[in-house]
Amino acid sequence: MSREIEMAVSRRALLRGGFTVTAMGVLGTSTAPLAFGEVGARAVDRPRIHTCSEWGARPPNGTITVENHKPTYIVVHHTAGGNSSDTSLAHAYQISRGIQNFHMDGRGWIDSGQQLTNSRGGHITEGRHRSVEILDGGTRHVQGANVGNHNSEVIGIENEGLYSTVDVPVALWNSLVQLVAYIAQSYGISPDMIRGHRDFNATECPGQVLYERLPELIAAVRAALGTSPASPAAPLRSWPLLKPGEQSDKVLAAQHLLRARGVAVKADGVFGDATFAAVARLAAENGVAYEPCYASRSADESGFVGVTTWPLLVRTVRAGDTGEAAQAARVLMSARGERFATVDTPTWQRLLA
């Protein structure tokens, strides 16, 4: 049976990103089992990854930490920089040097924060030193600096560009699928453990468009590996992201919840400067890690309401309660045509989904 027929169940997802499947198979043809405990695994080829020495990286100014365990999650980022039309390898090298310079000189980090970088031309480069060497070993991973409070458990891929309103180029998508499939195979990570940066920190990264394609990426990686769905892990995508300029019942609820904490912010359902400043103060006062779309000098996201800030805002309210938190719950339940009742954290998550 041809590989085209064998992979037909996931072909629609692959073709949307322009991923090309030939009779020989872009990702390899062997049928060696993987370490997923999943049915039908096949081996994928290691993509071409250009090392730090190839793109002219500066030496790190500190010791590279190598975690003595595998990463739990594969995290997708975008650089939040320009969507360049230059798809050359030379440009990919330039992007890698620019990111490293910014991270070392602008952030004060010892090296590039991400383990791997994927250009709009589909060229993959090593980010932090030793990342490729350790990845190929399949038992440990280099600690990066790309997901606040979670760097010991993630391996991050920085995708060149800004994907808030536009889609990723075909070449970038193809290389992302191949790279993620190889990482998943090398570490025995289920594709269900692919995440976006915003699943851990209150940031728009990897951009709304690319973030919405993560289920498609999971399906494409599964098709490449030849695996069937396993029991999915508990999803991290449990809180919405709110940012300046939005007008909604969710924004109004967030404002009421801020007021419940004694913050003097107007409850008008409009995410303006005052709401942004209030959220930023709340996050800072509670030690919430702020990790922006960090590979470029992107806009300040410290006042976004997301996965790290909603838990600071919500509280249990019960039928008959008054006050700002109860009003927030009523706003959300009214929008859904529901009668006000007890609202605990799981209920808040459901109402805000």
Rank of each mutant, 00 (worst) to 15 (best):
S10K: 03
R12F: 13
L15F: 08
R16N: 12
G18R: 09
G18E: 09
M24R: 07
M24C: 11
V26M: 12
V26H: 15
V26K: 15
L27A: 13
G28I: 10
T29G: 05
L34R: 04
E38K: 04
V39C: 07
V39E: 15
R42T: 08
R42H: 13
A43L: 05
V44F: 06
D45Y: 06
P47C: 08
T51S: 14
E54M: 07
G56L: 07
R58L: 14
G62K: 08
G62A: 12
H69Q: 10
K70L: 10
Y73M: 07
V75H: 00
H77V: 03
H78M: 13
H78K: 13
H91I: 09
A92V: 10
A92E: 13
I95T: 15
G98D: 14
M104W: 10
M104C: 09
S112R: 14
Q115F: 03
T117Q: 15
R120A: 13
H123S: 14
R128G: 01
H129T: 08
V132Y: 13
G137T: 09
Q143M: 11
Q143T: 01
N146F: 12
V147Y: 07
V147S: 10
H150T: 06
H150V: 14
N151I: 03
I155K: 03
I155Y: 05
I155N: 01
I155G: 07
I157C: 08
N159A: 02
N159M: 06
L162D: 08
S164Q: 04
V166A: 05
V166L: 04
W173C: 08
L176F: 04
Q178P: 03
V180D: 04
Y182H: 07
I183P: 01
Q185S: 06
S186L: 13
D192W: 09
I194C: 01
H197Q: 15
R198F: 12
R198Y: 11
N201L: 07
A202T: 08
C205D: 15
G207V: 11
G207Q: 05
V209H: 04
L210K: 05
R213N: 09
A219E: 11
A219S: 09
A220S: 09
P232D: 15
A233C: 05
L236T: 08
R237N: 13
L242T: 04
K243S: 12
Q247W: 05
D249E: 14
D249N: 12
V251Y: 12
V251H: 10
A253N: 03
Q255G: 04
A260S: 15
R261A: 05
R261M: 11
G262H: 12
T275F: 00
A277Y: 00
A280K: 03
V288R: 00
V288Y: 00
A289D: 04
Y290Q: 09
E291M: 10
Y294G: 11
S296I: 00
R297W: 02
A299T: 11
D300V: 00
E301M: 02
F304L: 03
G306D: 02
G306P: 02
V307K: 01
V307D: 00
W310R: 01
L313R: 04
L313N: 01
G323R: 06
A325H: 04
Q327E: 15
A329F: 02
G337W: 09
F340D: 05
A341P: 07
T345E: 11
Q349A: 11
L351C: 02
